[in-house]
Structures are given as structure tokens and as C-alpha cells.
């Protein structure tokens, strides 16, 4: 398989205007990924599938990832003049990360037996702009998995033929795989040894249940 840099160059040649960014993976450098832009994602995916040298004909795994806003604290040593003398002072800089949802696709080639090529798509934010282009028209195997990402994360895939909830029931409101999801308190009253659960349950099941 070609290296990620080569693939990036070839994508940019084949799909004019496509913006491809390599996302490094420190733990496992062979599984670094390519971040695609929304507008050209489908064209890039078609190219990856149809190019005879790449031939990623099989989208193995499609999933969502929730990235809520988080604050990263970094310690930086800064040289400063204190009382005329130069000394190193540790300063803590705080950085807010962008909040977004992510769809990750793991592509393999059944014909050439290579892979994985990992491509990612990121939404603009987590609240209302959670649209991503669907790659189901390119790989049929994305159909259920994109539905699942919609169901559990709330990513709206534009161009998906049948975007409905798949695991949760139709009337369900929230997206359970998001990090800030709070599970409902409607536990049955049971004398569990865990006080926390017990207390929460008791709020819903008033004493008459116990009698």
C-alpha cells in the first residue's frame, strides 16, 4: 500500500479542491488517518474505491466519536525577568478544544488485500450543525453503521437512503453514546447495595412501592 502522504497527494491531484489533512496517531503510527472536507468527501471516497492502485472496495468499520469541548492545561516554561534577573517560570496555559462529532471509516481492499486506510469527517459543532455527507452511495456497508452513528451520536448523514434510528426505538429523543448523556432515573426500586443508585431510585418510587 502507498504511504499516507502519497495517497494524500494522489487524492489532491484526482479531486481538485479537495482538502486533506493527515491526522497523526501517536500510539500506532501505521493507523494514522486522513481528515476530509465535507464538500469533496464523496468524490474522494469514489476515487479511493475506483482507483486501480488503491482499490479500497470494502468499508469495514464506520463509527462516530463524540468530542465535547474540553480544556487542555499545558505547562509552559517561560523566561521572564524578575527583579532584574532572568529566571524560568512555569505558566499554565489553558486551551479550549473545539467541540465536534466525528465519523471514522476504516477502509480495506479485498481485491489487493491491503489496508487499513482510515478517513475521518468532522462536524462543525455538536448542537445544530451535525451534518456530514453520507458515504453509503459509495460503500453499501456504511448503511447500517451510519444509521447507528446517527442513532447513538446524532450525526446527520446527508444523502443516506434511510436515516432512521436503528438500535433505540423511534420515539427516543437523546443520543446515548454522547459523553454528556445522562441516563434516566427510572430504575426499578431494588435493594441494591449501591446507595447512589438506591437514592436515585427512591426519588422515583415513593415509599408506597416498598409496602
Amino acid at each position: 500500500m502507498q504511504s499516507l502522504e502519497q495517497i494524500k497527494v494522489r487524492i489532491e491531484q484526482a479531486v481538485p479542491g479537495a482538502c486533506v489533512v493527515i491526522v497523526a496517531n501517536d500510539a500506532l503510527p501505521t493507523q494514522s488517518s486522513l481528515l476530509l472536507d465535507h464538500r469533496h468527501a464523496v468524490d474522494v471516497a469514489r476515487f479511493l474505491r475506483d482507483d486501480p492502485e488503491l482499490c479500497f472496495d470494502y468499508a469495514s468499520n464506520v463509527t462516530g466519536v463524540d468530542r465535547p469541548e474540553s480544556i487542555i492545561k499545558e505547562k509552559v516554561r517561560v523566561k521572564k525577568m524578575v527583579d532584574g534577573a532572568e529566571c524560568l517560570i512555569e505558566e499554565v496555559s489553558e486551551r479550549k478544544t473545539r467541540a465536534y462529532l466525528e465519523a471514522v471509516y476504516h477502509l480495506y481492499s479485498m481485491k489487493l488485500k491491503h489496508g487499513p486506510l482510515i478517513i475521518r469527517l468532522q462536524t462543525e459543532n455538536r448542537e445544530e450543525k451535525t451534518h456530514l455527507p453520507s458515504l453509503t452511495p459509495v460503500w453499501r456497508s456504511c448503511e447500517f453503521q451510519e444509521r447507528e452513528a446517527f442513532d447513538l451520536f446524532g450525526i446527520l448523514f446527508d444523502g443516506h437512503p434511510d436515516l432512521r434510528r436503528i438500535l433505540m426505538w423511534d420515539g427516543f429523543k437523546d443520543f446515548p453514546m454522547r459523553k454528556d448523556y445522562v441516563d434516566p432515573d427510572d430504575y426499578e426500586y431494588e435493594p441494591t447495595p449501591h446507595d447512589e443508585v438506591l437514592e436515585r431510585a427512591k426519588q422515583h418510587y415513593k415509599p408506597e412501592v416498598q409496602s
Partner: peptide
């Protein structure tokens, strides 16, 4: 406590490709 990163691993289970995707 693995260091930060991500991994996709898969094996041939009797039903097909069983994969796990972990972000650490």
C-alpha cells in the same frame, strides 16, 4: 493505561470480521 492514540484490530470470527476500535 495505554498511551493516547487509537487502534483498529480485527480477527476472523466464525461469523465474519469481528473488529474492535479503541480510542485511548
Amino acid at each position: 493505561r495505554p498511551k493516547p492514540g487509537e487502534v483498529y484490530g480485527r480477527i476472523e470470527s466464525p461469523k465474519g470480521e469481528l473488529g474492535f476500535y479503541l480510542i485511548t
